[in-house]
Amino acid sequence: MTRLGIVFTPAHDPARLIAAARAADAAGLHEFWLWEDCFSHGGLTTAATVLASTEHIQVGLGLMPAPLRNVALCAMEVASLHRLFPGRFLAGAGHGVQHWMRQVGARVASPMTLLDEYSTALQALLRGEEVTVDGRYVSLDAVRLQWPAPDEPFFLGGTGPKTLRYAASHSDGTLFAAAMSDDELTASCAEVIAARRSADHRIIAPRLVAVGAGADDRIRDEVGRWGKTDASGLAVTGGAAEVADEVARLGHLGITSVVAHPTDDEPDLEGLIEVLGRTAAALR
C-alpha cells in the first residue's frame, strides 16, 4: 500500500502547526512532513512539537542540511526524539541548498564527500557505536551516544543521479524534491530501485495538491513559483477520488509515500487535510 501524508511547508506560519498536525492525526494520514528551509522553521523544534502534539502519525523531517548541523549534536537530537516517540520519527538529511549554505558560511567544496562522511558517522552513532573519524569535513574522537536509537530508520534525499544512488545504497529511504515531473519521477525511481540496499527501502515523493474552489488557479500559480510553466504531470486537483487515483498511479512507479504539498496560498489547510484523510481511508 502506498502511504499518504502532507507537508507543512515554510510558507505557513508555525503558529498554525499544532492545529494542522492534530487535524492530520485525527484524519488518519500516515505521515506529516516538515522542511528545514533557511531561514524559516527550525526542523527539530517543529518535529518535536508535532510528535508531542499527536498520537499516531509518523513525523518526517526532510531534510536537515548536513553542512548546518554538527553531526554529534544532530545524532543526540535525533536519537532523543526516537526514544521519546518510538517508531514515529522519520529523520532525513541532505546537502542543503547551496546558496543558503554559502549565506551562513557553511558551504563546502565537495557536498558529496560531506554527505558521505556525515551520514556514515550519524548512522553509526545512532546504532550506538563508538565513532572515531578524521575526515575532510567530519571529525570525531571516540564519540558514543549514551542513549542511541539503533533500530530506527534514517533517510537521505536530494536531486541528481549520484545523490539518489548514494541515498538508496546508504539509507533506509530516499526523499525526492517537490514539483518533479512524471519523467523526472520515473527516472529517479529507477535510480533508487537499482541502487537500494534493501527491498523495503522507502521512496517519498511530494506532489502538489489543491482541492476546492480555485484549485486550478492556485496550482498554476504554485507551479510558477517552482519555475515551471505547465502543471501537467506535476500536480493533482479535484477531490478525494482524484487524489487517490494519483497516489495509486505514483505507487506503480515504486513510490511508497506520496506527500501532499499544499500551495503557498492554500486558504483552508484543515479542509485539505480532511479530503486527504478520506483518501487515506480509501487506500487502506
Rank of each mutant, 00 (worst) to 15 (best):
W100T: 13
L208M: 15
L126P: 14
K228C: 12
P148Y: 13
R22C: 08
W226L: 08
Q58P: 09
F8L: 03
R225Q: 02
R144L: 13
H170I: 12
V247F: 01
R88W: 11
D216P: 03
N70G: 05
I57E: 03
T49R: 14
A19S: 04
L84R: 12
A179L: 11
P14Y: 00
H56C: 00
A241H: 12
V259P: 05
A47V: 12
W33Y: 14
A91K: 07
H95Q: 10
E184D: 09
G157M: 07
S171R: 01
V209T: 14
I57Q: 02
A109I: 11
A282S: 15
G87L: 02
V133Y: 09
V78A: 08
G160T: 13
E266K: 01
R16E: 09
R102N: 15
R83Y: 01
L269V: 02
Y137I: 05
P150I: 14
H201I: 02
V192G: 05
V71D: 09
G60T: 07
L234Q: 02
A195M: 15
R278S: 11
I18D: 07
P65V: 04
G158T: 01
A66I: 06
A178H: 10
E191S: 08
K162G: 09
M64E: 06
P10N: 01
Q146R: 13
T46I: 10
M180G: 03
I193Q: 09
T45W: 05
G238E: 06
D265C: 01
K228N: 10
L250N: 01
F176I: 06
C74Q: 14
H12G: 01
V108S: 11
T9Y: 03
